[in-house]
C-alpha cells in the first residue's frame, strides 16, 4: 500500500508545475464499497485523492476520452500501466503527453466477496496492516483475510508493479509467477468439450447486454462496436442465446494480444458473469505461440498486427 501523502504530493507537484493539465485517480465514493474514478484539475482538488484495494476500475479506460494534445497524469497500477502502453502503441495518446504515477498493487478486492460474507449493508471497510480487512456491516464486524477477497484476475497477477511509469511510489512487489496465470486456463482446457461448453453457456445466458464489460475495458474504444452495426448485423441484437454467445465470443476475441488481464470487465458486470476465462485463454495462447505479453513496452506490435511466414500453426501444410 503506497503512502497516500506521497501520492498526493506527487499529483500536486505535477499539476502545480504545469507538467499535466489533469490527474486521473480515485476519490472516496458515496458508498463505502465503491471509490470513484476522479479527475483533478487543481492541486487543491488533489486532497480528495484516495487509493485503496477497492478501487476496482482500470483508469486507462478514460484515456481515450481526452484529446491527444492534453497532458494527462494518471495513477497507474501494473495492469493499468500495461493498458496505457497498449493504447500508446495503438496511437491513442502520445507517450509524451502522459505522466504516469506508478503504484505497486497487491490486488483489488472484489466487493462481491465482501458482501457474500457480510450481507449487503456495509458501512465501512478498513484495510489493516496485517493483510486483513476490517468490515463494519449491519450484521456486525468482520475481520477478513485480504487474500480471500481478491478478485480472481488479481490473485493470479503476474505484473503487480507499474511498467514504464515516470515515478513509482511505494515499494516494488515481487513479480507474480507466470505458471499461476496459465494454471486456470489449463484447468479449464482440461475439462471435456461438453463441460467447457456448459460453463460458457451458463455464463453467457445471464447477459443482459448492458455492455458494462465493454465500457469498463480500456481497449474497447471503438467509435462503433460490432454489435452496434445495423448492416451487416454481425450477431443478433437481443438476449437470445446466439446473441449473447456471439457478444461474449467476439468481445473477448477482439482483445487477443491486447488484454492485460486486469479483470475490469468482470468487476463491472452487474450479472456477475465470468469472462476472464475467455481472455486468459487468448492471452495464454499469445504467450505460448508468440512469446508475447501486451503492454510490457509501447513499441512491440501484438501478434495480430504482424505477420510471419514461419508460424507454427496446425493450418500449416
Amino acid at each position: 500500500m503506497p503512502d497516500i501523502n506521497a501520492l498526493k504530493a506527487e499529483a500536486k507537484r505535477i499539476l502545480s508545475e504545469g507538467m499535466v493539465d489533469i490527474v486521473i485517480g480515485f476519490k472516496a465514493g458515496d458508498t463505502p464499497l465503491h471509490p470513484q474514478p476522479a479527475f483533478f484539475k487543481t492541486p487543491d482538488e488533489v486532497d480528495q485523492l484516495v487509493y485503496n484495494a477497492l478501487c476496482q476500475n482500470n483508469l486507462a479506460t478514460y484515456l481515450t476520452r481526452f484529446p491527444k494534445t492534453q497532458k494527462i497524469g494518471m495513477v497507474v497500477r501494473g495492469c493499468e500501466s500495461r493498458s496505457v502502453n497498449a493504447l500508446v502503441f495503438e496511437g491513442q495518446h502520445p507517450r509524451e503527453g502522459l505522466y504516469l504515477i506508478g503504484v505497486p498493487c497487491d490486488g483489488i478486492i472484489d466487493w462481491r466477496k465482501i458482501v457474500e460474507q457480510t450481507g449487503e449493508e456495509v458501512f465501512s471497510v478498513i484495510e489493516q496492516s496485517d493483510n486483513t480487512v476490517l468490515v463494519e456491516a449491519k450484521s456486525g464486524f468482520f475481520t477478513l483475510e485480504k487474500e480471500t477477497l481478491l478478485h480472481e484476475s488479481c490473485a493470479r497477477c503476474i505484473h503487480p508493479n507499474p511498467i514504464s511509469a515516470d515515478v513509482v511510489i511505494g515499494e516494488l512487489l515481487p513479480e507474480g509467477d507466470p505458471a499461476l496465470a496459465c494454471e486456470k486456463v489449463a484447468a479449464f482446457a482440461g475439462l471435456s468439450m461438453e463441460e467447457r461448453h456448459a460453463w460458457f453457456r451458463q455464463e453467457a445466458e445471464r447477459c443482459i447486454r448492458c455492455y458494462a464489460c465493454r465500457e469498463a475495458c480500456p481497449m474497447c474504444y471503438c467509435e462503433e462496436c460490432f454489435v452496434d452495426h445495423i448492416s451487416p448485423r454481425w450477431t443478433e441484437s437481443g438476449t437470445t442465446p446466439a446473441g449473447m454467445q456471439g457478444w461474449h465470443i467476439v468481445r473477448a476475441f477482439h482483445q487477443t494480444g491486447r488484454c492485460t488481464s486486469c479483470g475490469a470487465c468482470e468487476r463491472a458486470c452487474p450479472m456477475d458473469i465470468k469472462m476472464t476465462y475467455l481472455t486468459e485463454k487468448l492471452n495464454e495462447d499469445m504467450r505460448r505461440k508468440y512469446n508475447f505479453e501486451v503492454g510490457l513496452d509501447a513499441t512491440t506490435a501484438p501478434p495480430f498486427s504482424t505477420v510471419t511466414l514461419d508460424d507454427k500453426s496446425r493450418f500449416v501444410i
Binding site: F39, Y62, C210, Y211, A212, E215, A216, A268, P270
Partner: peptide, 13 residues
C-alpha cells in the same frame, strides 16, 4: 458524468 462509463447498468437494472 465525467466518470460515467456509458454502460447500461443503471438503466437496465
Amino acid at each position: 458524468s465525467r466518470s460515467c462509463l456509458g454502460c447500461g447498468v443503471c438503466t437496465f437494472l
